[in-house]
């Protein structure tokens, strides 16, 4: 067991190292001189040369890469050009809406997907199964910004139940802020529910055919108990996996949804960073998000080891 954990740990570190390198390459591929970009249009060539030296842009790529990694190891993500603050701080200031949005979306997605997935597996081939399976494909085909716009139009503009955009002003209470997240979370949750529902259905189908479920049934156990207790328990691991990975991937959805709803989260930060050519922010966001994904993946793998003794590497 310890050897397995150690191996996974080494692999994770290797993946992280690759993530860091990929991000470095992407940002360095970008055309244009970051120094000229930072100084703006009125800079003299001398200013630019000085700043290049100060930023270490005049040294070789390998040296730059070394410095960049060294900075990262000390937790330094660089300095935002437009916002005039460290990238880490800028990201931290934007973390709350994205965190809550992700959390709520998962609730919404699971609230829809788990019952639908379980029931459609249980009634495999029924009209319910066919309708929900088709609906899931349909939902997965709707562009998420489109759904966001429609919900905003109906519930915020027409019915006036929510503010169409923003996250409350300064001093807005937590309740006010969360109220702003309802529509975006529903929009995002619906879109993500399709994948989770498919997974739930597939995992339940796997389990429902297993011997011990048949045994439980043969012992005269109630159907609801068979499904919820025995089958669900065993189907839970793959389902949790997909939920965990969906959570990490939700940042993709959050980018679009936060932009539609004007939420000051990490997603809209990265979009405005692209539009403002604020490369350090793009770089920092990529690193943090990918890092989180790798970590979640690792934790899930470890959970597998603990929960399911059949898993061996």
């Amino acid at each position: 067991m310890a050897r397995v954990i150690l191996r996974r740990l080494v692999e994770m570190v290797a993946v992280m190292a690759l993530v860091v390198t990929i991000v470095f390459v992407i940002v360095r591929v970008a055309p244009g001189d970051p120094a000229a970009m930072m100084l703006g249009p009125d800079a003299t060539p001398q200013d630019i040369t000085d700043l290049r030296a100060r930023l270490g842009l005049d040294s070789s790529l390998l040296v730059q890469y070394g410095r960049y990694v060294a900075g990262l190891l000390q937790g330094d993500l660089g300095q935002s050009i437009f916002l005039a603050r460290p990238v880490g701080q800028a990201l931290w200031e934007r973390a709350e809406p994205t965190f809550f949005l992700t959390l709520f979306s998962i609730f919404v997605a699971c609230g829809i997907a788990l019952p639908v997935g379980i029931l459609s597996a249980y009634w495999r081939g029924s009209v319910f199964d066919q309708v929900t399976t088709t609906t899931a494909v349909f939902v997965a085909s709707i562009p998420s910004f489109w759904l966001g716009l429609v919900l905003m139009q109906v519930f915020a503009v027409k019915l006036g139940w929510f503010d169409p955009s923003g996250y409350g002003g300064p001093g807005a209470s937590l309740a006010e802020r969360l109220h702003h997240l309802v529509l975006p979370a529903v929009a995002l949750g619906i879109v993500s529910s399709a994948l989770i529902a498919r997974f739930t259905r597939a995992s339940m189908l796997d389990v429902l055919g297993d011997d011990y479920v048949r045994t439980a049934r043969a012992k005269g156990m109630g159907e609801a108990r068979v499904v919820l207790k025995h089958a669900m328990k065993n189907a839970l691991i793959p389902i949790l996996t997909v939920i965990g990975l969906t959570a990490a991937l939700l940042i993709s959805g959050a980018i679009v949804t936060e932009t539609v709803y004007g939420l000051p989260g990490v997603g809209s930060l990265v979009v405005s960073a692209v539009l403002r050519r604020d490369y350090p922010v793009i770089q920092g966001t990529l690193l943090i998000v990918a890092g989180l994904y790798v970590l979640i993946n690792f934790v899930i793998d470890m959970l597998y080891l603990v929960v399911d003794p059949r898993v061996r590497y």
Binding site: I22, S252, G253, I255, I282, V289, A290, N297
Partner: peptide, 17 residues
């Protein structure tokens, strides 16, 4: 694995940028 760690839209945005 490392490339899969980037959410698709985010990586696409960064690459296009």
């Amino acid at each position: 694995d490392a490339m899969m760690a980037f959410p698709d839209i985010l990586l696409a945005i960064a690459l296009v940028a």
